[in-house]
């Protein structure tokens, strides 16, 4: 009876796992397929058995401006194709900078709010949060006009500024909750030991806060990395990011599924790797309040 129950549990677990990971597998598998294998009406699932893997798609998105299709006719690919490498670099720069800025300023703000008495503190904190209450698309038109007038369209700085301001409320709230949990005696002890408050923050509080900073950084990265709407409308050329590019592959001529899949895999990989690297911090950061003391 117990064994049956356990077996049932694992079967259910397996089904859920397949449900969530199959789309990912399908994308990865498609990225290694020739066009004929991708569009085949019989699903080709297993590499080396159903289809012969190829790295052509990856070569194409990184090194080729145009390519030949399986039918033998030359399809002129959109200019976007050759731009993938640049898009990826743009995404890294914009996401990296906005995450660093959001975590840096958010941590300082959260520390101040947590440690000092600030007039109208709860109103201010609510105001900070309220900027997250409307979806970005609502402010798209005003931001577009504003950026147009200020010359911020198609610049790194414009999107970095926007993403930083989107992520700040989140960082401030998470980090404030975290700092509230760190006994202030730590800084006081350091201040008694002959350090200034800034030295105490740098030497004592920040090392303690790294798990939480890592956790908030992961969330900031995911938000900035995946953002589509603003990037699509504001940065169309020089400083464009990967998400609009993925969309543009679908939109131009015959859909290059293989290339789309390869670009998607390359796009998803950095976030997966980073999250994997900081996973221990992430867990500690998220459960911090629960396990301490």
């Amino acid at each position: 009876m117990r064994i049956a129950k356990q077996a049932g549990f694992y079967v259910l677990l397996g089904l859920v796992l397949i449900f969530f990971t199959f789309p990912l597998y399908w994308i990865v598998a498609s990225s290694f397929k020739e066009r004929a294998d991708v569009i085949s009406s019989v699903p080709k699932l297993v590499p080396f058995v159903d289809f012969t893997p190829t790295t052509n798609n990856y070569r194409d998105i990184f090194f080729r401006a145009e390519t030949t299709t399986g039918e033998g006719s030359t399809v002129s690919a959109s200019a976007d194709v050759s731009g993938f490498r640049d898009r990826l670099v743009n995404s890294v720069i914009i996401t990296g900078a906005s995450t660093l800025l959001a975590v840096f300023f958010g941590t300082l703000t959260a520390y101040a709010v947590s440690r000092f008495t600030i007039p109208l503190e709860s109103d201010l904190m609510f105001f900070v949060l309220s900027t997250r209450m409307l979806p970005p698309i609502v402010v798209l038109i005003p931001v577009f006009v504003l950026f147009n007038d200020l010359g911020l369209r198609d610049s790194y700085f414009g999107l970095i500024l926007l993403y930083t301001s989107f992520n700040l409320p989140f960082v401030v709230w998470i980090m404030k909750g975290f700092f509230d949990e760190i006994p202030r005696e730590y800084e006081e002890a350091a201040m008694m030991d002959g350090y200034s408050r800034f030295q105490a923050i740098y030497k004592i509080v920040i090392p303690e806060a790294i798990p939480a900073m890592a956790a908030t950084a992961v969330f900031s990265i995911i938000v900035s990395w995946n953002e589509f709407v603003l990037a699509n409308f504001l940065n169309r050329d020089a400083a464009s990011t990967v998400p609009p590019y993925l969309n543009s592959i679908i939109g131009v001529g015959a859909v290059e599924w293989g290339r789309l899949a390869a670009a998607s895999v390359v796009f998803v990989l950095p976030v997966v790797v980073f999250t994997f690297l900081v996973r221990n911090h992430l867990l500690r950061g998220v459960t911090f309040g629960a396990v301490r003391r």
Partner: peptide, 16 residues
């Protein structure tokens, strides 16, 4: 505090 040349022992020790 650091310039007063005194040491403080906290109730919860506050060991780093």
């Amino acid at each position: 505090p650091g310039d007063r040349d005194i040491a403080f022992v906290f109730q919860f020790y506050a060991l780093y």
